[in-house]
Every structure is written in C-alpha cells, then in structure tokens.
C-alpha cells in the first residue's frame, strides 16, 4: 500500500512539472507583453519596465523564470500578483467559496445521480428508466450557461425559491442554486453511469448467488450490486472535482460569486500572468490528488483489488 502510494506520487511528478510548464509557457512565452499592458496607452516612465521585469524575474531566460517559479511553489510562495497583492491572499479569498460550491455540486451528483441511477438501473426498460434517460440526455446537451440563466430566471426571479445571486456573506443558502447548476451536467453523467453499471451488475453471477442464498432484496442491492457498481462512478466523481473548479468560471460569472473561477477569469483577461499560473497550478494539484484518492478508494470498494 505504502509502496503503491509512493509509486503513484512519483508518477505524478513529471505530470505536475509538465502541466505547470505548459501553462507557464502559454502565459509568458507567447506574444504580448503583460508588463507593458499594465500601463495601457500611456508609455511608462523609463526604468520602470525594467524594474518590474526584474521584480517578477521576467528579465531572465524562460527556463530560469520557470525554475524560480517552481522553487517558489515548493516553498508555498506563489509570488505577488501584478496588482501588488500576494497571490496567496487572492487564493485565501477565492478558494473557500469555490470549494463550498464544488461540495454542493458533488453532493448533488452523488446523492441524486447515484439514487436515480440506481432506481433506473433496477427497473431497466421501465417508464422511470426511459424518462430519466431522456431527461439526463437533455441536461447533458444544454450548455451550463443556459442552464444557469434559466435556473436563475425561473427559480431565482420568477418563483423566488432561492436567492438569484450571491451576496457578500456567501451563505450556504445563496450558494445552493449555483452549486446545483454547477453539478447539473455531471449529475446527468453520474446518473447514466450508475444506471448502466447497476443494470450490468444485476445479471452478474455473484448477484444471482446472493439471491439464491436467500438474502433479502435490499441487502443484495446495497451490498452486492451497488458496491460493485460504484467503481466507475467514483472514478468519474474524482476526476470531476478538478473540472468542477474550472467549470465554476461560468457558474460564478452568472451568479456573481467571487471564487476561483471569477478571479481566474479576470486574471486571464487582464493578463495577470502570475495569478493565472498559480491558480492553474493549484487546480492541477487538486486534479492529481483526487485521481490518486480515487485509485485508493478502489481497494475499499472492490476487495479483489489489492495494492501490494
């Protein structure tokens, strides 16, 4: 087990460096001068450009810049944004609210996706199954920003069931609607995955054996069908966490949330290189750790899988 985790962590190292190098190169190596852009139309006073470049290491060769940046990350120093605020401070502001948003989305996906998927899979071919399959297809096909606007318009403004936008206090109640919207597409994927997986497992030999032994239906379903069916679902949920945080760019824009997505989007548009690179780095780390966690969960769900 320890060996397995160690090996996986080692495998993550090149991926981590590759992904951060890729983003770093896209932000700093491609045409356009982020420092000059800071001054807009007016030319900056002489010497200032050089001074700022030196401050952000932009006067050094690219690979040295990148290595200095990595050195910073490893000591948890994400540098300073071009606005002068430390990036860590921006993160401390942005991440808590987005993590809560992602948690709501994950909870919606897990509870409703697995729940509906299980019922549909158990009654394959029935009315509920057919309805749920069609609805999930439609949810997948409608882009998230359209779902967001319609939900905001209908639930937030017309029916006034939930707050339509998120204010300064960022309460759970305000985050509920954007969280549901954020998780909507993945909810449909989880539902379909669970449904197919449950339907396949129902006809498996071990399930027939369990039924033949005289186990009650709820026990057969919960212990023998569901547990096995959850493996692909857990994989999806794990890899989805990173995508949720990135997908928050759209949802946070619609519902006016000051989270990772909003901060990141503003940083990209305004050419705030250091902020972009740091945020993406953290998101890549989240993705890598989540996929490691998923692999470890396999062993819990399926006792046949052992990590020696």
């Amino acid at each position: 087990m320890v060996w397995y985790v160690g090996r996986r962590l080692l495998q993550m190292v090149p991926v981590f460096f590759g992904a951060t190098l890729l983003i770093y190169a896209m932000v700093f190596l491609l045409p356009g001068d982020p420092i000059r852009a800071l001054f807009g139309e007016r030319p900056p006073p002489p010497g200032v450009l050089e001074q700022i470049r030196a401050e952000y290491n932009l006067d050094k060769p690219f690979i040295v810049q990148y290595l200095l940046y990595v050195k910073g990350i490893l000591t948890l120093d994400f540098g300073t944004a071009f606005t002068g605020r430390p990036v860590v401070e921006l993160m401390a502001n942005a991440f808590p609210v987005t993590i809560r948003l992602a948690l709501i989305a994950l909870a919606v996906e897990a509870v409703f996706g697995i729940g509906f998927g299980l019922i549909a899979g158990l009654r394959r071919g029935g009315f509920f199954d057919a309805t749920v399959l069609i609805v999930s297809l439609i949810v997948i096909a409608i882009p998230i920003f359209v779902i967001g606007f319609v939900a905001q318009f209908v639930i937030g403004l017309k029916l006034e069931l939930l707050p339509a936008t998120v204010g300064q206090e960022e309460s759970w109640r305000q985050l509920l609607l954007p969280g549901i919207v954020l998780g909507a597409t993945s909810f449909a994927y989880v539902l379909r995955l669970t449904r197919n997986s449950v339907a396949d497992n129902l006809s498996a030999d071990h399930v027939r054996t369990a039924t033949a032994k005289g186990l009650s239906r709820p026990r057969v379903v919960s212990v023998h069908v569901l547990r096995n069916s959850l493996i692909p679902v857990v994989t999806f949920l794990g890899t989805d966490l990173g995508a949720l945080m990135a997908g928050a760019i759209v949802t946070e824009g619609i519902f006016n949330v000051n989270g990772v997505g909003g901060t990141l989007y503003q940083a990209v548009i305004r050419g705030q290189g250091t902020t972009v690179v740091s945020f993406v780095t953290v998101l890549v780390m989240v993705y890598l750790l989540a996929s490691l966690l998923v692999d470890l969960l396999y062993a819990v769900l399926d006792p046949r899988i052992r990590y020696a």
């Binding site: 590759g18 992904a19 890729l22 990173g242 995508a243 945080m245 997908g247 760019i249 993406v280 998101l283």
Partner: peptide
C-alpha cells in the same frame, strides 16, 4: 500532462 488541465481552462 494535457489531461490534467481542464479543457475549458
């Protein structure tokens, strides 16, 4: 490496 960066991002 490319997979670790979300498509939209």
């Amino acid at each position: 490496i490319f997979f670790a960066i979300p498509l939209i991002l």
